[in-house]
């Protein structure tokens, strides 16, 4: 035995020893617990830490949030607040026409709903199309394929605030993009202070920030399609467009459904990068639901935690529906996979 391996063994023993002592200490009570409760009790024992964390950080806040949504006033502590039942919900849902936010009692909420709805439709569509095209390109034998995969995934690793800041430096009036346009003789554009461009910038930036993740899922799906099928299609004289629509897309559909639902969930929750980029402006043109909840609950002078909580519960309901759809799709894919 070499000196090195002897030292290694001693270090290993020193690390393992405390674990052994700990095991010896908890062994006796665990045995007693198992004798008393059986294997079901043991399962409960091992699940308890996780359930505790879930309870403290997810379940309890959810219940407390719901209780807040049934109270009014601007006090933060629940006992100091007055119970109003469903009044906050009524206030949010009271509307002349849901298509016109100005007819609603809580017009900002409905403006945020409209903005979020439009954002979800446009951003998810663009995100899916761009991610799909990128995945299709990265799935081909291109030079530096691994490098390009890393490049497209890189923004996913950035904090949303960093994403927002980077793009603010690029898009602000005296930012990089306008400087470059000026060099080529174009007039500067108000990317972040024009209603249309600010909304478009929000979509573009969030697509840029998230597409790497979705590209990765689609790429994995593309690579799971057997190469033989494409060769069979080639032998069958299938045109490239038909190969995509009749072979690639149907076989990619399980992944695509997951991607669409995840993208929808993320898009509904959009906040940080766009908030850093535009602050919800100009006016309320990039005000989204999460920002509305944050501002009503914490940031405005006349803060109303009850109203914010009610809005978050309504938004949560939408997310629950989307999550259930995702779970259903996932289960269906699993069953289908098992059959094939």
């Amino acid at each position: 035995m070499t000196i090195g391996s002897a030292i290694g063994q001693k270090i290993g023993a020193a690390i393992v020893a405390p674990i052994g002592w700990l095991a010896a200490i908890i062994d006796a009570p665990l045995k007693l617990w198992q004798r008393a409760t059986g294997t079901t009790g043991m399962a409960a024992f091992f699940l308890a830490p996780n359930m505790l964390i879930f309870g403290v950080f997810v379940l309890a806040p959810f219940v407390i949030n719901f209780l807040y949504s049934t109270t009014s006033g601007n006090a933060f502590f629940l006992p100091d607040r007055s119970f109003v039942g469903a009044e906050q919900y009524q206030r949010l849902l009271e509307c002349g026409s849901y298509l016109d936010p100005s007819t609603c009692r809580e017009d900002l909420f409905w403006k945020a709903v409209h903005n979020t709805g439009l954002f979800v439709v446009l951003q998810v569509t663009l995100l899916i199309v761009v991610s799909m095209i990128t995945a299709l390109i990265l799935n081909r034998e291109i030079v530096g394929r691994s490098f390009w995969r890393a490049v497209f995934f890189f923004p996913v690793l950035l904090s949303p605030v960093v994403v927002g800041l980077i793009w603010r430096w690029i898009l602000q009036r005296q930012g990089l993009l306008n400087s470059m346009l000026y060099q080529f003789g174009y007039q500067p554009t108000e990317w972040l202070t024009d209603r249309f461009w600010a909304f478009a910038a929000g979509i573009t930036v969030s697509v840029w920030a998230h597409m790497g993740f979705f590209t990765l899922i689609l790429l994995a799906g593309l690579q799971a399609i057997p190469r033989d099928l494409y060769e069979a299609a080639e032998m069958d004289g299938t045109r490239p467009g038909r190969v995509f629509w009749r072979i690639t897309l149907p076989l990619l559909m399980p992944n695509l459904l997951v991607v669409i639902i995840l993208a929808l969930i993320r898009a509904v929750q959009i906040f940080d990068e766009v908030y850093v980029l535009t602050g919800g402006g100009p006016g309320t043109s990039t005000l989204f639901l999460t920002q509305y909840i944050y501002e009503v609950g914490f940031a405005s002078l006349l803060r109303n935690p009850g109203l914010a909580a009610a809005a978050s519960i309504l938004m949560g309901a939408v997310l629950v529906v989307l999550t259930l759809v995702q779970l259903q799709v996932g289960r269906r894919n699993e069953k289908k996979g098992a059959r094939e």
Binding site: P226, D228, L229, E231, A232, E234, M235, D236, G237, T238, R246, I247, P250, L251, E340
Partner: peptide, 20 residues
Amino acid sequence: VSAADRGLAMVFQSYALYPH
């Protein structure tokens, strides 16, 4: 000449049937 224009048909080891 491309595979489609050779007038040949192939049976693959994996069968390569379109599963959907």
